[in-house]
Design a protein around this nucleic acid. Sequence first.
DNA 1: AATTTCTGTTATGCTCCTTTAACAAGGAGA
DNA 2: TCTCCTTGTTAAAGGAGCATAACAGAAATT
Lengths: 183, 183
Amino acid sequence: MNKEVNDSTYWREFDKNPLSHSMAHYLMAIDALRNELGYARSTDIAEMLEVSRGAASMALAQLKKRGWVTEDPNRFLLLSEDGARIASMVEHNFIILSKFFEQVLMVDTETAMGDACKMEHLVSNETGKRLLWLMRYLLSDEDLAVKVRERMSTYKPRCDPLTEQCPICGGTTECLATAEAVL
Amino acid sequence: MNKEVNDSTYWREFDKNPLSHSMAHYLMAIDALRNELGYARSTDIAEMLEVSRGAASMALAQLKKRGWVTEDPNRFLLLSEDGARIASMVEHNFIILSKFFEQVLMVDTETAMGDACKMEHLVSNETGKRLLWLMRYLLSDEDLAVKVRERMSTYKPRCDPLTEQCPICGGTTECLATAEAVL
DNA sequence: AATTTCTGTTATGCTCCTTTAACAAGGAGA
DNA sequence: TCTCCTTGTTAAAGGAGCATAACAGAAATT
């Protein structure tokens, strides 16, 4: 099961993701504060993210070192061009993912946003843009949109492998959908 | 922008995910080894995941403490019922996600698997099962499958907001798809 | 001007996950 | 039996990210 994944130590790419979850949120907080208040200071970031000022200070130092955050002459925080691009990308990923979960998969809002938030910084650029491309289609083509909505409104948490043909389960002995949550 | 996300400190749910990425892979490695060799020892896990024996030993101690891993009379590693369920769920999430990325979004295999691996343990049970439900439809209904494939084969990395109506971009000033990668 | 408050930085310590290295116990072969 | 190798555990240390607390300097209040 997932042999190739486990064999090539590929699974640790996770930690090597160029952008950590927290760093993404520091960048987005700067963006949000500048849109909201017109400026962003370290303390505002800390308050918005509900972390200590010390934590914010150290995180921002890290982001400055990476060249994603700078300061204006009055020492207010700015996103560099790269920083802004990264923030924007993650924000977009969040929007696209949460809309997909909520409006296509018809997951409840809470879950959709929780899932989107966890994954927003992990989606590759390629996958993110292609998901957007698909979403624009799924939500604009009435015919298709209706079909998909119909499909999702008949959602059954598990299927009967004896009577249904499943192109996903394929070789596996048990229907994937029967995996129950324990967590 | 994502105001509600930043405001409610909701973004830190990420760290509180019941299952860390590494723990998920330790569980899956046990499963894989038992399927492959019929047994799983600490050293085998370490080798498969390419971590030190010390790291594997401590991780497994943690997993035993949580009740997800046990030992048989010969001290070989076993997954508890809960552990097996979790491993199975993450494995399924990987399959579903990578198939979705590769066969629906038509992302290249490498990227699809990389993205899937990063997210496999973060997908909620609800979202995972609904994605499977949608996938079964997208891949089985010929009509729809063809339409979606057609859509994705005309993929353009960016769209022109002046001539195209985008139900996603909505209020944003810039088309989401124009966000360029920096990472 | 003097005092208080706010802002940002730094020191220390915690958790998680990793590493290397030291060590104990068991099994295999000479 | 006596080595030698494998296996598993533990100790020490490091990086990421967080907290708390002490501090310096700036800003605002009195």
